[in-house]
Design a protein around this nucleic acid. Sequence first.
DNA 1: AAATTTTACAACCGCACACCG
DNA 2: TCGGTGTGCGGTTGTAAAATT
Length: 291
Amino acid sequence: MGRAPCCSKVGLQRGPWTPREDTLLMKYIQEHGEGRWRSLPKKAGLLRCGKSCRLRWMNYLRPDIKRGNISADEDDLIVRLHSLLGNRWSLIAGRLPGRTDNEIKNYWNSHLSKRLKNNKEQTSKNPTTTHKGAPKCEQKKKSNKNDGSIAHCEEEEEEEEEIITKTKVHLPKPVKVSSFPNLTWSNDSFDYGMVISSGTSSSSQGEGVSDAEVLNVHPFWPELVNDAIIHFDYEGNSTTDPSSQNNVAAENQAQAQDHNMLDKIYEEYQQLLKAEDHHDQLDSFVQSLLV
DNA sequence: AAATTTTACAACCGCACACCG
DNA sequence: TCGGTGTGCGGTTGTAAAATT
């Protein structure tokens, strides 16, 4: 048998969290900090399992969570990182500031895995032709909703073709890493109103933080922003030290370099795949990504 | 307009690892 | 070294909303 459950489930609340529960949890964590999840619910006056509290905090209430649609860049990054790292969502999430492993996992399961599957089916049915597009995109094209998503669809279709050429062969041993080493805690900017809406995950798009406002830099590659140290406050804004005047330029440059670096990493990875006796090299290569 | 199906995602669950006494 | 506890992870489920029939 495995270990005992993290808590007695008798008499505990389950299912979706209420705004009141969210408030209690946030208030408690703001006053006492994270951790001690097992004893937290009792102290915070919650009828929840500690694990449930942790999950709610990590995946939804944490102020640095970036909500809303996954951008095309993030989408691309997820696909590439998944091809390198496999289903190691926490590692992938660690390279997407503000995104949680759960969110990325969900996104993969509901969007990307289907795209890959559809693409494989298309290519196996008709290997001589390239691709006809995923059903979802076909539907979008049929409908008259010209919201710009069709263009994105076509981009996605192009990506699909590229995706299936990437070989997923290596799953290194898990290494635990912290997600946001450069995050700074600022109580002053802690905004309850921003995160208190329970159960309306996708409704926050258009409110709060836009994609453009969120710094697209990977925490593990700080060199991407000219060695500047990035700080995120709890409203999703970022500043750089010593001054923030070059933020926009730095972001743009970071994004461009970001793509280049991913390409380089992937090229290097492909080279290693081709090499004889590549397993050791692959191990060290992937480990180098994880550091 | 109602019924049915699909989608998206929050939440749950079990397991494994790290840490500490 | 060992056992208990805390935490993190990935797979899976439940369900509300959206889309389709």
